[in-house]
Amino acid sequence: MISFVLKRFLQLIPVFIGATLLVYFLVFATPGDPIAALSGGKPMSPAVEDALRAQYNLDKPFWVQYGLYLKNLFTFDLGMSFSGQEVKDLLARAFPVTARLAVIAMAIEAVFGIIFGVIAGMRKGKIFDSTVLVLSLLVIAVPTFVLGFVLQVVVGVQLGWAKPTVSGQATWGELILPGLVLGLVSFAYVLRLTRTSVIENKTADYVRTATAKGLSRPRVITVHILRNSLIPVVTYLGADLGALMGGAIVTEGIFNVPGIGNLLFKAIRFGETPTVVAIVGVLVIIFVVANLVVDMLYALLDPRIRYA
């Protein structure tokens, strides 16, 4: 197990370096003045310009610049936004909000996705299965932001069940509706994946053998079919964390949630490239770490991987 963790960790290093290098390269290694690129074409005060030069060490060779950028990332020295605030402070305020939102979305997609997926898979071809499948297709086909707007207007404004926008505190209760919107598309994917996986596993030889041993139906379903079907689902959920980050930009924008996505959304709207680069860098770190965690979980779920 330890050697497995170590191996995975070593494999992540080139990915992490590659991803941050990619981000960095995209912003700084393009033709033209990087300062002009960073400003998004807007005029900047000389003070801001100097600060940027210092932040990104633009007078040094590329590799040194990149190295210092990595160092800054790890020490959370992320520079200033154009409005003169520390990006670090902005992130510190926004992060817990997005974390809450992601937890809600993850919980919704995992719990409901797996439950519905198992029921649909066990009743393949029956009415429940067909209905759920069609609904999942609809959820995938309608863009998140359209769903968000519709739910905001219907649930928030017309029915008045929830506040259409989120306050500065962004409490758990306020985040349920945005969390639902954020998790909905992935919910559909989790459902479909679980369903496929259950259908495949329920005809597996070891399931038949388990039945032949005299186990009760519920035990066969939970201990053998569900347990084995979870392996690909967990992998998907891990990879989905990244998609949630992307989705958060849209969802937080719609519901005015003061999270990282919103921060990024505004930074893009106002052309604040340095802030965008800083935030994306942090998100890549989170994503890479999350993937490591998922790998561990995966190994825990599948002994064949652990000992391979």
Binding site: A204, D205, Y206, V207, R208, T209, A210, A212, H224, R227, N228, I231, L301, D302, P303, R304
Partner: peptide, 11 residues
Amino acid sequence: PQDPMSNLNPV
């Protein structure tokens, strides 16, 4: 059962 490879639950 027949196939020893597929009849034990791998997990």
